[in-house]
Amino acid sequence: MNGQFDLIFQIGIPAVLVLVGLFAGRIAERRHLARLTRREAALRGMLCTNLRSYPGGVGGDGRAELVTSHAVISSDYFKTFIAGLVSIIGGELRSLQTLMDRARREATVRMLEDAQQRGFNAVCNVRYDTVDIGAAEQRRNKAIVMATIMASGTAYRTA
């Protein structure tokens, strides 16, 4: 009896979590990507570069302001599980690659939206940083898997 319970706990619960992660994670990812595509389309007029000079010249009232944004996107149980499997044989962790990509796009979109709201139409000298929020769940030797991106740039109006 005891052995059966142990089996349920050791295999059953992770199996359920993998399934929950697969469905919930996939829905969350699809919705997020759809949202990103929509917001990126609305920002098409913004000039976004990582040049240190101000491409297009500085017009308007000549103002320039630092804009910064953050995005922290969580992995789901399925992605983490697959990553664990792949790391046994090695190779590309596609499930986590898309996660990083989503976080970077989200941070970029937020930065551009912030610039647009402040009346600018261009951002130059864009930089990306990753942030390590430490392993919050380290108590059980289980780190939270997440993509943490910080984007910054200088917003201005082109001439």
Binding site: V20, G21, D76, Y77
Partner: peptide, 11 residues
């Protein structure tokens, strides 16, 4: 955040 790590999404 630990719970969200199961289903995915923004933290």
């Amino acid at each position: 955040a630990g719970l969200k790590n199961i289903v995915g999404g923004e933290l």
